[in-house]
Write a protein that binds this DNA or RNA. Structure first.
Lengths: 142, 142
DNA sequence: GCAATATCTTCAGTGACTGAAGAGAAAGGC
DNA sequence: GCCTTTCTCTTCAGTCACTGAAGATATTGC
């Protein structure tokens, strides 16, 4: 039986985060001691590690919820898990593409900065200049 | 004199977002019609475009606030703007590095997925397997 | 038995918006 | 001038994924 602090240390998850996952139903409600403290099975540690690993891979908690539901039914075909992962991969690729464009623009701003005073500063000029504006006006999510 | 809707269309910013920027002091409080509707100067349009462009480059609103303050004082040396941009560049590079690692791991998950049923699904296996866990336990921010 | 540490609940806050409700203002057409 | 449609107003709550703090109680180690 593991305390919440032990789970926290073993997974690198803050105690409050573990309680938060419980609250939103990602982790089952654990048993309690006579005094009301949570006590976990090793099984719960695995589940939490799964969640954290998914987060580190950039999955949303909703996606992780789906993946957990899949992994609870081992007879299902794995196409669903595959498609979740592919969706995630596409999102990651999009973010990389967008960030690479930003990187280029930032580098250009910096290298072209004359270093004199703000009036000629390339950094501010780029931000001011509407014509160089990136044209996609939807998500920023950088 | 421009209505908030015109600003919204010209910059691709939602009306509520413009009001939000006003509320947090990024945009000055505009004049009002007799009926209480906001009316903007072209000057305000430029400022909003500056903000939005900064956001698209991944600057936080706080960073943009600093940049705006700099651009309001054109006699200052531009070292400050430069250092904000460099900081931003470093952050962007870090995000790209992290996302590239995620991309690799996701690709590996997907290509190795046998496609049979969940029990052998590589996607879920990777998430379950603690030993393959990325070792940095701090920020996720993907 | 006591002190130190861990855990409890509850609430509020973060960043950067977004959405909705319900009411009033402006604009265009006739 | 009136009517309808569209715009805008304020206010409040919600999003995501946590994070922090206050004040009280439990457990652990010595």
């Amino acid at each position: 039986m593991l305390s919440i602090g032990t789970l926290s240390k073993k997974t690198g998850t803050k105690v409050q985060t573990i309680r938060y996952y419980e609250e939103i139903g990602l982790l089952p409600r654990p048993g309690r001691t006579a005094g009301g403290q949570r006590r976990y099975h090793p099984h719960d540690l695995d589940r939490l590690a799964f969640v954290r690993h998914g987060r580190q891979l950039g999955f949303s908690l909703d996606a992780i919820r789906e993946l957990l539901a899949l992994s609870d039914q081992p007879q299902q075909p794995c196409a669903a898990a595959d498609s979740i992962a592919r969706r995630q991969l596409r999102q990651v690729e999009q973010r990389i593409a967008r960030l690479s464009a930003l990187k280029q623009e930032l580098e250009r701003m910096i290298t072209e900065c004359a270093g004199e005073n703000v009036a000629e500063c390339r950094v501010l000029e780029v931000l001011r200049d509407h014509s160089e504006c990136l044209t996609d006006h939807d998500n920023i999510g950088a």
